[in-house]
């Protein structure tokens, strides 16, 4: 048995609402690892956003996979879908001035939110699918 990290994997169908199950599991894990309640909430919110994006933009019936890597000092979450992909660098940050004038007609700012909630965000995307990798590191403040 490996003692440097523990890997877990959950597959869910692309049905909005089902992501609550892996999110609840990750919340329990993050709390057990020693993350503070605020950081547990950040991790849960980031995972929710990533899963919902994968579900909403998935064109196929293929499952969305959530890969969890629990290391001694970090928690790495991957959300993998088989959707059509997107260009991560083409997603602009929210323009709050414009939003205050025009409102928000559709969608939100999921990627922006994830970026703000975790320590490191990596996105690999192609026309065969997307992997969103979110890393959060345990800090002294968590203990």
């Amino acid at each position: 048995m490996a003692d440097t990290f523990i890997k877990m994997q959950i597959s869910i169908p692309p049905i909005e609402g089902v992501e609550d199950i892996p999110v609840a599991a990750v919340e329990a894990l993050a709390a057990k690892m020693g993350f503070s309640p605020d950081r547990v909430q950040d991790i849960a919110q980031a995972l929710t956003e990533a899963c919902v994006n994968a579900i909403i933009y998935s064109d196929s019936d293929a499952d969305v996979e959530i890969v969890i890597l629990a290391c001694q000092n970090s928690l790495i979450l991957e959300v993998r879908d088989k959707g059509p992909g997107f260009e991560p660098d083409a997603v602009p940050p929210p323009n709050f001035e414009l939003i205050s004038e025009m409102g928000v007609k559709n969608g939100g700012f999921g990627i922006h939110m994830i970026k703000a909630l975790v320590d490191k965000l990596e996105i690999e995307s192609s026309n065969k699918g997307t992997v969103v990798r979110m890393s959060t590191f345990l800090s002294k403040a968590d203990n």
Binding site: D20, E49, G103, G107, G108, G110
Partner: peptide, 17 residues
């Protein structure tokens, strides 16, 4: 019990309107 960015976007839209 749960909020996603799309929901927050809708709330922002109401505030702006």
């Amino acid at each position: 019990t749960k909020v996603v960015s799309r929901g927050v976007g809708a709330a922002i839209d109401v505030a702006v309107q």
